[in-house]
Computed example of a mutant assay.
Amino acid sequence: MNRTAPAFPDDLLERWGVRNAELVADTRSSGVYRVRLADGSYAIAKLLKPSGLHEMPGMDFLAWRAGLGAAKLLDRHDTACLLEDAGTLTLRQYRQSQGEAAANAVIADLVKNLHAPSPEKPPAGLVPLERHFRSLFEGAARTEVSELSSVLRRCEKIAEALLQAQTDIRPLHGDLHHDNIVGDTGRGWLAIDPQGLWGDPAYDVANIFGNPDGAFAEIIEPARIMTLARLFSEILGCSKEKILRYAAAHAGLSVCWSMENGDTLSRGGNAFERFTFAKVVMPLVGEA
């Protein structure tokens, strides 16, 4: 055991045959370990804290996917989860060396795998998009009159219309972005850390528009936005406008999440970047 890490629970050591556990992250919501098992293989152990129980629907999603397009859920015991070690190479790192087009090709293939049909019945505990967007509806209502309130209310209007017209409702990863796509273990690129949502598949690519971290100048470039819209509309079989409208709605939601966590619209923060993206994408969907 790593002596600097919090003690790994004895019952899990025995249950999973853990021979060594290295603490990878200790956050408000979970403790994450890379563990070596009795057969010499590695896995990821995620021990959810009380503030991390919202991640349980994501574990249901992984169990349902059974490894297709996503890391496998190997075992679950109460709020402790043993996951396939999907590797350490993130798509953000890959994009830095191989470029935007190569990264987009990875995303396209991954989305196809994540949305491929499953013989299993969808989990019952997935979060409906209507509930997922609650922070946007609440944030738009309480924001004082300003440019921010105007943008959030337009995002709210877009979200309401989209949610009322959902089609092909299915399980969604819910948090796809370049740091949640990993691939250097021989299984190809895999999605990790899903939220586990239930709704229109067009929402599952909305977060890609605001990523990766550190690429803000490209994120707000209309040419890139339209390239992604064309790519995702072809993959998901829907209009470019629908893809863009979900991207705009998600940007408003992300602003609200960030501000709930104490962020402001100061330049360089997530709220500022998502707010700026929303202002750029609105004219592309006739919401100027």
Rank of each mutant, 00 (worst) to 15 (best):
V106R: 10
L284S: 06
A271E: 09
L228R: 12
R224S: 12
R274L: 04
E218D: 15
V18D: 07
G262L: 08
A70G: 08
A80F: 00
F277Q: 06
H177F: 13
A7D: 11
P194L: 04
K240E: 15
W64S: 00
S239I: 07
G183Q: 02
E147A: 14
S41L: 02
E138L: 14
H132F: 15
L148N: 03
F209N: 03
L126S: 05
L12R: 04
V280C: 08
T264V: 05
L89A: 11
A25Q: 15
D75L: 01
P283A: 01
A165K: 13
E287I: 13
A229F: 02
K112C: 10
S135T: 12
A70I: 01
A86H: 06
L172N: 05
N207W: 12
W198R: 11
R134W: 09
H132C: 06
A161M: 12
L23I: 13
V24C: 11
F232R: 03
L148E: 10
P171H: 03
P117H: 12
T90L: 13
A206V: 00
Q195P: 00
E287P: 08
R134T: 14
H177Y: 15
A105E: 15
G262C: 10
G40P: 03
V205W: 14
N113M: 14
D193N: 11
D179P: 00
V255G: 02
K121I: 14
G210N: 15
W198I: 01
L23Y: 01
E138K: 11
Y94T: 03
S254F: 00
C256Q: 02
G183E: 06
A105V: 05
G58L: 01
E100H: 13
L244V: 00
V106A: 05
D26S: 15
H115T: 03
L12P: 02
P9Q: 05
C238T: 14
S266V: 12
A45V: 05
V281D: 07
T88E: 14
A271D: 01
K72D: 00
L37A: 07
L148V: 00
A7M: 09
D200N: 08
R224I: 09
D179A: 08
L190Q: 14
L236P: 07
P50F: 03
L37S: 07
Y42W: 12
A45F: 01
C81I: 11
R134M: 13
E100F: 13
G125T: 09
R34L: 10
A247M: 07
D10W: 10
F133W: 05
L244M: 12
A25L: 10
R65K: 12
L190S: 05
